[in-house]
Amino acid sequence: MHTLKATAASSLSLPAETYIYTIAASAPGIFAAISSDDSLRVFDAATLDRVSVISNKTHDAGVTSLRSYAAGESQLLVTGGREGKVKLWDVRAGNAVVEMETARHAPVLSVACNPENNTIVAGTELLSSQAVVAFCKPARNASLISEITTNLTAAVTQLQYHPTRSNMLLSGSTDGLVNVYDTTIADEDEALVQVINHGSVHHAGFLSERTIYALSHDEQFSIHAATDPDDSAQEPEPVHFDDVREPLGCEYVVQLCLGAQGPYIAAGNKIDKRLDLIPLVSTPTWRFDLDNLWRLPGAHGDEVVRSVYLDEQSQSVFTCGEDGFVRAWKPVDGGDEDVQNPAGSGKISRPKDKKQKDRFKPY
């Protein structure tokens, strides 16, 4: 086991009793956060206290989702709200430059972005026995999301584009289904290329180009091969971990984090006041590498951690939670020379022993 220590903490000048839902990268060294007071704020990763309020009222009925919309040098963010709107924010300008509405103002629960083809996609709550995945191409005069929709029978809690194939979109919903679509195909039935029945989806996404994971609201976890329509080879059987709370020694799972060193499961324990980042490794088969987990002692006290971000640039881990704080974490000095920083691009560097320059000494 390895340890990360808290190096900074900030309430982002939020009102007392405010939850911080999600943090996301806005630009190198700059992060954004959405909170239960419906604000959108950005802060400096180096200090956490340099905070700018982009909007005090991001969405009229409550903000639900946040994603970075990377587009060249622009600092753009996408949010979704319960009033049925998706907004594209220009951080530098400090305002929403595009607003779009779902049909019948269906509350938006999840969003995903694909700057490669200039597309934003929104997943909605169930409204009149129907939920929708709606696509749009943002423009400054946009007012309505495109009517190109895929109809579902449960709330859409997760959306993610394929890491290399911009036409492939994954959705997860509370009916337990993880669907993968080819968005270039207009016919809904033909566009659906894969269906995974997992359980009410909390998080789901691509572990790699050929691998999908799913995490349910009751902490059931599984890994599946992604279907390749152009490959007729037989797919390997899925790996079902069932309820991971007991084997991971946690009360809840925050999310799966993809870092430079691979995937980690972020698992929280309120009683012990800790958060663990547990490597998920594929050799010889998919398993949790509990011997090499990273522990964040204290975490967010006895409050739930809501979001985790592994920042390779600063080689730091950022967390936010229901205590209303963002916290920054770095490895504790000392330990094994070969330890891999979960947020770094390689091994943690250790200084040479000044008295014996010809050998390394761990501190």
Rank of each mutant, 00 (worst) to 15 (best):
G81L: 02
D49W: 04
L40P: 00
G298W: 07
A134V: 04
S282C: 07
Q315C: 13
L40I: 04
G72I: 06
D243H: 08
T211Q: 09
G301I: 05
L258A: 08
L76R: 08
N114R: 08
L310P: 00
N292M: 05
L152S: 05
D333N: 13
N179S: 09
V98N: 06
R67G: 00
Q255K: 08
D37M: 04
L76W: 11
A25S: 14
D218E: 14
A299E: 08
S314E: 15
H198N: 13
T3A: 12
S307E: 09
D60V: 08
A46H: 13
D311T: 06
A186R: 13
E322P: 00
G72V: 05
G72T: 07
A226I: 01
L280P: 05
R287A: 10
P247H: 12
Q340E: 08
E17G: 05
W286P: 02
D38C: 12
D231F: 10
G335T: 10
E337A: 08
P362Q: 02
R327A: 13
G335K: 06
N167M: 10
G324N: 05
P351A: 11
D289W: 06
E303T: 12
L169H: 00
A96F: 02
S143R: 14
C113T: 15
T64I: 02
P263S: 02
K352N: 02
V133E: 00
D44N: 15
L275A: 11
A154V: 09
V111L: 01
F241S: 04
F325W: 05
H300S: 09
K347N: 04
H198M: 08
N56Q: 12
L192R: 03
H240E: 10
I348P: 03
H2I: 03
G324P: 06
D333P: 15
V339C: 07
T211Y: 01
I212R: 01
I196L: 15
G334A: 10
A214W: 07
K347I: 06
A328R: 15
T164C: 06
R245H: 08
L66T: 10
H162E: 07
I212Y: 01
P115R: 06
K270Y: 02
P284F: 09
V244H: 08
A33C: 09
W286G: 01
V156D: 00
D291N: 14
T153E: 14
A106Y: 07
A225L: 04
Q356D: 10
F206I: 01
G62K: 03
H59I: 06
P163G: 09
G344C: 03
S349G: 04
N269C: 14
A32G: 13
F241I: 06
D37T: 04
D187L: 13
D333Q: 13
D44R: 11
D272T: 09
S282R: 09
R287T: 08
S171W: 00
T7W: 07
S222D: 04
L144W: 10
S307I: 10
R50W: 05
F360T: 02
L296D: 12
H300D: 09
S55W: 01
G334Y: 11
S39Q: 02
R350V: 12
F43S: 08
L275E: 11
A61W: 06
S65Q: 02
D243Q: 07
I23N: 06
A155F: 03
L192F: 00
A233L: 12
P28M: 11
T153V: 12
D228S: 15
G344R: 00
E219F: 12
M168I: 15
A266S: 10
L40W: 04
D187R: 11
